[in-house]
């Protein structure tokens, strides 16, 4: 069995509490993927492209995207991402509080891998994150 590089996570989320919830859920699910956090779409793009001094987020990687954010929200980020020839194959999961059909459809237009619901019941969310871990384990992600 060839060596499988660890999947890096980029969490795009402005709310620190949500970041904390996610980290705890990740722990509860027994996952230890490296996590990088971007506060908004602009920061996330910078992280993926490796602008400034930091190198780009290494592949294989998965972006976890919140929709409501300041400066550049999730939809604007996705539009930019899909327009970039380097990043158009980026795997993205959306994490949203909105269960509205309308929001869901708009997001899927940008070919996201899934639309995940943030929910209050602790176990439910841990389940979601566990599924994400399973996904990263089983699904072969693009390397370049």
């Amino acid at each position: 069995m060839p060596h499988r590089p660890e999947v890096n996570l980029l969490l795009v989320e402005d709310n620190q509490l949500d970041v904390k919830i996610f980290r705890r859920a990740l722990n509860s699910a027994g996952l230890d993927h490296p996590i990088q956090v971007a506060g908004n779409g602009v920061e996330a793009l910078a992280a993926l492209r490796g602008e400034g001094d930091d190198p780009p987020v290494e592949r294989p990687n998965v972006v976890l995207l919140d929709i409501n954010m300041p400066r550049m929200n999730g939809l604007e980020f996705l539009r930019e991402l899909r327009a970039d020839p380097e990043l158009r194959n980026q795997v993205v999961f959306v994490l949203s509080t909105s269960d509205a059909e309308h929001d869901r459809e708009r997001v899927y237009e940008y070919n996201v891998a899934g639309y995940l619901l943030k929910c209050s019941a602790g176990e439910d969310f841990v389940d979601t994150v566990r599924m994400l871990g399973k996904y990263m384990e089983k699904v072969r992600l693009p390397l370049h």
């Binding site: 709310n15 509490l17 949500d18 919830i21 705890r24 509080t97 943030k118 929910c119 209050s120 019941a121 602790g122």
Partner: peptide
């Protein structure tokens, strides 16, 4: 958002 936080 706050509700989820409250719950967590």
């Amino acid at each position: 958002g706050p509700i989820i936080a409250l719950s967590a």
